[in-house]
Design a binder for these strands. Sequence first.
DNA 1: GAACTACAGTAACATTTATCACAGAAGGAA
DNA 2: TTCCTTCTGTGATAAATGTTACTGTAGTTC
Lengths: 210, 210
Amino acid sequence: MQNALKNIFPAFSNELIATIEENGTLHDFEAGTILMRTGQYIKNTVLITRGKIKIYREGEDGGEFLMYYLQPGQACAISMICTSKSEKSQIMAKVVEDVSVMMIPLQMMDKWMMEHRSWYEFVIETYRSRFEEVLEVVDNIAFRSMDERLEFYLKRHSDACGCQEVKLSHQEIATELNTSREVVSRLLKKMEQRGLVKLNRNQIELLKLN
Amino acid sequence: MQNALKNIFPAFSNELIATIEENGTLHDFEAGTILMRTGQYIKNTVLITRGKIKIYREGEDGGEFLMYYLQPGQACAISMICTSKSEKSQIMAKVVEDVSVMMIPLQMMDKWMMEHRSWYEFVIETYRSRFEEVLEVVDNIAFRSMDERLEFYLKRHSDACGCQEVKLSHQEIATELNTSREVVSRLLKKMEQRGLVKLNRNQIELLKLN
DNA sequence: GAACTACAGTAACATTTATCACAGAAGGAA
DNA sequence: TTCCTTCTGTGATAAATGTTACTGTAGTTC
């Protein structure tokens, strides 16, 4: 186990790993579970050791908007930011592939920042990379049209899974981009005509993208 | 001077204030100055003691998109995040009202985090509030139409200045929302017809908003 | 006052995206 | 097979936003 954590978070010092083992608790959640809702209080910082979590924003009318995915070796920046004062979550977190997460009580957060250099650096880097990712999201919706955003979305997916196939229905994609299925279908069809993708049921093969 | 800083950043401990005085340098910049550009390396953390700075994202085509304003008592979260590894800035920062800023060399950042509790808390709170603000921006562009975004924009301005008048031309507003002047003019006219605002040259009075 | 400039209003039109309506195809279940 | 459900494709239309083009108005400068 200790080795497992060290493999997933190689930057952590051995003492830090030991401390995490001691104070954190490991939990498994199935795909579909909602780990966090808008407005909910946060009591733990979450480190992902397996699976995939989707972080998204929910509109008043129930629409969704994907911010980013969390994968093994990463942590939820929101949970880190909010824990320090037990603030409310501003986002939704949903498990998309069965996950294992290490939950760390919020009191540890401040303590470790002072005691463990590798924790401090990890936290700062988490803030930085998430902030950057959100800025990129802003760029996309502020400056790009739906066809560009769709391309970007597909690329991001294939980067994340390391393969050339995106196994999602048009409806699922539409939901994450907060648009309608028809729009996604039409744009994908155009991309297919341009030779960028090949469409199958519940699956999109990326050809010339990347 | 010591008192001045203490007034603007009341949460800072006296030792911290003294350390800032010792290591930071005070600079003045006129309205219009661009303090930071996308892609530029960051060498300092910036504390605002006077004036107003606009933080925005720039599109490839030169379009802008307002993220938020920085005012006295606040710090640039981006400069804090990036300094730790001397990363590149992802945003633009432009002075909109003559400012005085305290520049703190990046090496201090990490050091003070360990040594000064009030600095640590300030930094975490800065991260949190900016992240939240950016999430709100995402909400606005993802879920709201231009008329709602315009209302929100005007409210934010009047909150910031504490008055009921927004002294901006339609063109300036259009630029910050990344739309065209004609659209802003049209929507403002409709708002005037609904009795929400009163339009004058270079000035919009908010009536029923807030 | 005349000339100039920045700002504001508005009509006409183009484009993008959303919505409605429906049809057909793929796959699973009885 | 037949029935059902989910997914996909596509036309027609509506709504929101962007673009072009032109007019008028307020303030400034000469």
